[in-house]
């Protein structure tokens, strides 16, 4: 039976945008799905679970231009504890920058893992402006592409998809500045305080 295990590898998985992207995927997936957050303590539990699924969808944010260490460490455990039947691995990645292409290196790292460990690589969805897009009228751009991603896994017609806010970079910078000012305001921190040039006390 075809089914999908969705693994959220965001370091803040329970409160992450990746979780929302995963929920949208579950809404559109015509294949049965199960969702798990990866954490330090459940690597083996998930490695054992993967055996029961024909496909894996990793959902995660770009961290320091590549995959988060949460995911790197899980992949290393999976390498040492492979399932008997290896599922197809797909990726849904988001970055806070407007260019979805900034996710490319992280995708290549996932492809190398697959190649070295004998997994077929499936589809990719690269999301730009992923930190804020869900709170904007452009949310439907993401939903539409996640629907396509879900269809590609269902039909085994794997492909590369991408999406971002359809605005100019200068407008994006203005919008993201306001987004972060409001984020700081909720914590009682002003724009000027957030702009400090000091690192620790230097």
């Amino acid at each position: 039976m075809e089914n999908i295990i969705i693994l959220n590898a965001s370091p803040r998985a329970p409160k992450s945008n990746s979780k929302i992207y995963a929920q949208i995927f579950q809404k559109y997936s015509k294949l049965p799905t199960e969702y798990f957050n990866i954490n330090k303590l459940n690597h083996m539990e998930i490695c054992n679970k993967i055996e029961q699924f024909s496909q894996v969808l990793f959902v995660f944010p770009l961290y320091a231009d590549s995959i988060p260490v949460t995911l790197l460490n899980f992949l290393k455990t999976l390498e040492n504890n492979p399932p008997k039947n290896k599922p197809v691995i797909s990726v849904l990645i988001n970055c806070g920058f407007i260019e979805p292409e900034q996710n490319d290196t992280a995708v290549k790292i996932m492809q190398i893992f697959c190649k070295q460990n004998g997994y077929v690589f499936g589809s990719v969805l690269k999301i730009g402006s992923g930190e804020a897009i869900l709170e904007t009228p452009f949310r439907f751009f993401v939903s539409r592409k996640i629907k396509k991603l879900a269809s590609s896994l269902k039909n085994k017609n794997y492909g590369v998809f991408k999406t971002t806010m359809p605005i100019s970079k200068n407008t994006f910078i203005k919008a993201s500045t306001n987004y972060w000012i409001n984020y700081g305001k909720k914590n009682g921190v002003s724009k000027e305080e957030m702009q400090t040039m000091k690192i620790e006390n230097n």
Binding site: F97, I98, K169, N170, S176, T177, W180, G184, Q195
Partner: peptide
């Protein structure tokens, strides 16, 4: 900082 700028045309 959280804030974004353009570096060689990229955010």
């Amino acid at each position: 900082q959280a804030f974004i700028r353009l570096v060689n045309g990229e955010t």
